[in-house]
Simulated assay, not measured.
Amino acid sequence: MRIALGLSYRGCAYLGWQSQPGGRTVQDQFEAALARFMGTPVRVACAGRTDAGVHALQQVVHFDSPVSRAPFSWVRGTNNFLPPDIAVNWAQPVVDAFHAQKSAVSRRYRYVLVQAKVRPALLHGLVGWTHLPLDASAMRAAAAILLGTHDFSAFRASSCQSRSPVKTLHAIDIGRQGDTWTFDFHASAFLHHMVRNIMGCLIAVGSGAQDSVWLHNVLQSCNRSLAAPTFMPHGLYFLGPQYPASFDLPDPACDLPQLFA
């Protein structure tokens, strides 16, 4: 039986999603908890790997189970063995053709940024920070340049394992409430560090250090060395993948916009 699970986690304490020998990753913690509940080792496939310090509101995974459990049992049973900063939100049987990564048609991220003279100590690890004043109009004009299907090599980490740098960026929505900025990204898929590298460039434009023509040239160059440095991971949230309606999976449980509207 193939099972899909939706989970959320706070990434501060972990070295990202993907399993590593030291065991300090979300995947390691999650698979250990799932194995204790099932009584047998298990490996899962995820919708999208997240970096160290990055959070998720709706990570989706799937695995093939040799045992049968009711959906609520998968949720409660696995959560019983998970640390408090990782939680399963829902579980559902799926057809064998479903794959958490390959079946996704798009993915969404949100970056939460605080603009303040002093770094926000109480929100450390949960938000990004800049002391520089930002121009919303300039950043929106720059973001519009990136929309569409492009070669995003200029925003790709050297360690990226994606087969192609060509992705379709559907939308970048920028909002502000008080000192808190939100940057919502929706794309067919993302390259390694793509959102954080774009964030570095948008902040360079918003602060007046660069203009939108510079960002256009960076995109066209496909040269990572011409773009801004990779921005900090702390304010990045994986809002989740989107799948064809035929799989009938729950909509992403995006509580984040309520917390950082």
Rank of each mutant, 00 (worst) to 15 (best):
Q18P: 00
R43W: 02
T130Y: 07
A47M: 02
L202P: 05
P241V: 11
S73F: 01
A253L: 12
R69K: 14
L122I: 11
R49N: 07
Q20H: 11
L34T: 10
A143S: 12
M1S: 13
Q115C: 11
W90D: 03
L34K: 00
S162Y: 05
F231C: 02
S207C: 09
S137V: 13
H131K: 10
A116N: 14
D173V: 15
M232P: 00
S221F: 09
W17S: 06
R108H: 11
D51R: 03
W90Q: 04
S164R: 11
R196Y: 07
L259I: 12
L15Y: 12
L226S: 12
R176W: 01
R24K: 14
H99N: 15
C46F: 02
Q177A: 14
G235K: 05
A227K: 08
Q20E: 12
C201H: 04
S225I: 06
H124L: 09
Q101P: 00
L146G: 05
H216D: 13
H192K: 08
L122D: 01
A100W: 00
A33N: 11
K167P: 00
D184T: 13
K117G: 07
A144S: 14
N217G: 13
A261P: 15
L15M: 11
Q58H: 15
L249M: 02
A227I: 06
D179M: 03
H192R: 15
D179Q: 13
P252A: 10
V127S: 03
W129D: 09
Y243N: 10
W74M: 03
V112W: 10
V114T: 03
A142C: 13
F30A: 01
Q242I: 01
R163E: 15
S19R: 15
D251V: 08
V54Q: 04
I174V: 14
L259R: 15
F63P: 04
A52Y: 02
V88H: 05
G175C: 07
R36M: 12
C201P: 04
R49G: 04
L113I: 04
I198F: 07
S8R: 14
L126N: 02
A121E: 04
F30K: 00
H170L: 10
R10E: 09
T230V: 10
R119N: 08
R224D: 10
D248R: 14
L5Y: 01
S65N: 06
S73N: 10
A227F: 06
V195W: 04
P93Q: 01
F247E: 09
H186T: 08
L191R: 05
F247D: 11
H55N: 02
S246Q: 13
R24E: 12
F190L: 09
A144Q: 15
A209N: 09
F183L: 15
S68A: 13
